[in-house]
């Protein structure tokens, strides 16, 4: 259940950034989760609802984008998305290297700001 520590890190990071920008209330947070990242979206959502209480994110919705696994062929340069554990390149047949699908990235957030805080 390491989703709890992942969500704690998310709430900590977003709260810190929001306070620096003068944001009073966060309405949504976007998180990219790779299919190979070993983090379950439903467990992340469950933990988020627990951790966000009494924080600036209390009213926020967590929006999760699941990123499919990506393979890259170092021989012919083809990148392709596939659910397989491993993949031979569909172009040249050589083993492709898994390059994506392990992301755990806070894409950004939206919130309300009484003093006209800074976007980026």
């Amino acid at each position: 259940m390491h989703e709890l520590s992942l969500v704690s890190a998310l709430v900590e990071e977003v709260s810190r950034d929001a306070q620096e920008r003068g944001v009073s209330r966060i309405t949504s947070v976007s998180l990219a989760v790779g299919k190979r990242a070993h983090a379950l979206p439903h467990a992340l959502l469950f933990c988020f609802d627990l951790i966000k209480r009494d924080t600036i994110l209390a009213a926020a919705q967590l929006i999760i984008e699941v990123i499919p696994p990506l393979f890259h062929c170092e021989s012919c340069g083809l990148s392709e998305t596939h659910d397989a554990l491993w993949l031979d390149c569909t172009c040249c047949g050589l083993p492709a290297v898994p390059t994506g699908g392990t992301e755990l990235e806070i894409r950004g957030y939206e919130g309300d700001c009484p003093r006209g805080g800074k976007e980026n």
Binding site: A9, E105, E110
Partner: peptide, 15 residues
């Protein structure tokens, strides 16, 4: 109040 949108692109495991 003003609604703002912040792009972070920050790794969750960065800490």
């Amino acid at each position: 109040e003003k609604r703002i949108k912040v792009a972070l692109a920050r790794d969750l495991l960065q800490k």
